[in-house]
Design a binder for these strands. Structure first.
Lengths: 121, 121
DNA sequence: ACTACAGTTGAACAACTGTTCAACTGTAGT
DNA sequence: ACTACAGTTGAACAGTTGTTCAACTGTAGT
């Protein structure tokens, strides 16, 4: 939402270390990269979605079973699965009346694993 | 918020694969672990906080300069720094009128780096 | 064709989150 | 003691987010 510019308007500071600020500005990633990054983490920043990811970590599961496991309605789970789908974190496969969801790749597993290490300290 | 139980109340499914669900239930992490994990990612899931982390990645900065760099008010930055402090993602050091913030450790850097790899695909 | 059920979807609602604003604390300089 | 300014803080507000509810789609079985 916020966009930082060459001559930031909102800063009311007097004693700015202009040289440092300018140097850092060059080193900062693109605005879009920062948004992509925080958007990615936003997906993982919900306990329901985190639970779903762990549930299907051991193998694909249908919506019904995920809902049963988490003690939630199919609707609530389906809404969250949609978000996970749109972020390409999960894949799905229709077989008859069921839709089976699975983890899309190992990247996410690694990231969550690293975060777990960080937390346990 | 949601707590899953041995006999989930909210699931209205008929065709549940009970054996799979029970097996997964045993393999699931503790409820508290899931919350800690998603809470951690929640912190990284905001572009302002992500920007701040990148800003101080190159070395400690005072609140004023961070605000100038991001084009935000000191107040807004300070509020986010408080959250980052409470999560032990940053450290701070007072010198005179300024407060310099720095990254707490390398863990976070690694996680963000891994997420970046994931995004660029 | 009809019924049953897994899954999806949009609207509505409540809870949460980030920024703004104004008031405040504390340090430095005069 | 006074002024100036960096930084913090709580309340208020607007925007966002997750769950619920009800209606819907599509497939399987009869």
């Amino acid at each position: 939402m916020k966009v930082y510019e060459k001559n930031p308007p909102a800063c009311e500071c007097e004693e700015v270390h202009a040289d440092i600020v300018e140097k850092r500005r060059d080193e900062m990633p693109d605005q879009s990269t920062l948004y992509d990054l925080s958007d990615f983490f936003k997906i993982l920043g919900d306990s329901t979605r985190m639970s779903i990811l762990y549930a299907i970590d051991g193998g694909s599961m249908c919506v019904c079973d995920i809902a049963a496991l988490l003690g939630m309605t199919k609707s609530a789970v389906s809404h969250q699965l949609k978000i996970l789908r749109q972020s390409d974190l999960v894949t799905y496969r229709k077989t008859g009346k069921n839709v089976f969801y699975a983890l899309a790749d190992d990247h996410v597993r690694d990231i969550i694993e690293k975060a777990l290490e960080h937390i346990k300290e």
